[in-house]
Simulated scan of single mutants.
Amino acid sequence: MPKVILITGTSTGLGVQIAVQAAQAGHTVYATMRNLAKRGILDAAASDAGVNFNALELDVQDGASVNAAVDQIIANEGRIDTLINNAGAGFVRTTEQASEEDVAWVMDVNFMGVVRCTKAVMPHMRAARSGHVITISSVGGLVGQPFNEIYCAAKFAVEGYTEALASYVTPNFGIHFSTVEPGGIQSEFAASVLKHVEATGGMLEDEYLPILQKYIGGAQARMDGSDIYQTSEQVASVVMGVVDASDPPIRIRTSNWGEAFTRLKTEADPDGKKQQAAVIEQFLS
């Protein structure tokens, strides 16, 4: 059955590919971004794929913007079946180097943006007794990584938020919650990391510099021929599998590398269902 799908962060990369694949599957797609002046990549992808979708302005850092977009979709369609929280931003800085403003920004985009969008759609999904909130997390939401502690903290928050909602909203109101956990994405990782490092003062001359150079150099080297990195299209196809699932996972990795990398934390409960059942039994039985 075709669904009404709201996707955030569709100006580039993964968001564009999710929008295209959702439209190709016959769903009604609302592709949103903070600045519609940057919709050129989205429009070109739609033209190349021969699909159509609705573009709306939605800034995940602005509650009024989020609510206005949701209200517009409800006015047009009467429902939102699936929210895909894709908007996010990477951040590579040590704790010592990061300002409080940096930390607040990372948490606001990657975590509070998810909360704002989820909060906006939930009353409509709850009234319908159905719906699905899918959030693009990361293997960094399961395993902390060098120079990514602030970003990983935001993604860990997303994982906990999703697990908690799934423990009581899903069994009582029929709304499902899932996180999708990619590793690296070829078209985005190194370029976005380096761009942000340069925009925030470049590589600082301190004791962390040789370690950071090793980290970034390794990330760039692994982009050639490594199974760490996937294309946006590959990750989007996993997202669409979650969209179509009748009993969707609470969490899912997007590659064999991701499964191996997170194995020590996920092997006993790969999709999160066992933990969900244990929490419900402990607190709500």
Rank of each mutant, 00 (worst) to 15 (best):
S167D: 02
E233N: 05
A44P: 02
P146K: 12
G50K: 15
S99W: 08
P123A: 03
G131V: 06
D244K: 07
V92C: 10
Q220F: 10
Y168S: 06
S232V: 12
K38D: 14
K119D: 04
A75T: 04
T10N: 12
D206E: 02
Y168C: 07
Q220G: 06
L56G: 00
G183S: 12
P123G: 02
G113E: 04
Q145W: 10
D62E: 07
R251S: 09
D271K: 05
K273G: 08
V238A: 06
L204S: 14
R93A: 13
E181N: 11
I7T: 03
V180A: 09
S232R: 08
A277V: 06
P146N: 10
I150D: 04
T200Q: 11
G13H: 01
V103D: 05
N67E: 13
I80W: 09
V60K: 10
Q17M: 14
M240L: 15
P171G: 05
L142V: 14
D43G: 06
N86Q: 07
M112D: 07
P182S: 00
T162G: 11
G26M: 06
I185H: 01
Q145L: 10
F189D: 14
A164P: 03
N256H: 14
A37G: 12
P270T: 03
N172K: 06
F147I: 08
A87N: 00
G183H: 11
L36E: 15
G144A: 15
S65V: 06
S232L: 09
T162F: 04
S285P: 01
S226V: 08
A166W: 03
A22V: 08
A46C: 06
A69Q: 00
L194W: 11
I252C: 02
E233R: 07
A120Q: 06
V106A: 03
G131D: 10
G15Q: 01
R34V: 04
L56N: 05
T82H: 10
Q17G: 02
N172S: 05
E100I: 11
T231C: 00
E100M: 14
K3I: 12
L165P: 04
L142I: 13
I134E: 03
F111G: 01
F173V: 12
F111W: 04
A68K: 11
S232H: 06
E77L: 10
M33N: 09
A120Y: 05
S65G: 09
M240R: 14
Y168A: 08
V92A: 09
K119F: 09
Q97C: 11
P249W: 12
T254Q: 13
F283M: 05
A25L: 07
G50P: 02
V143H: 09
I84W: 05
I136R: 00
L212W: 04
K265T: 10
F53R: 02
L209Y: 06
A69P: 01
L204N: 08
V121C: 06
D81W: 03
E198M: 13
P248A: 13
A277H: 05
F53N: 01
E281V: 07
T82N: 08
A23N: 02
V115W: 15
M122P: 07
Q276T: 11
F189G: 13
V66W: 04
V193A: 13
H124V: 13
D227L: 01
A268V: 08
T262K: 05
D227R: 09
D48Y: 04
A25H: 11
A23S: 06
P2E: 08
A64E: 15
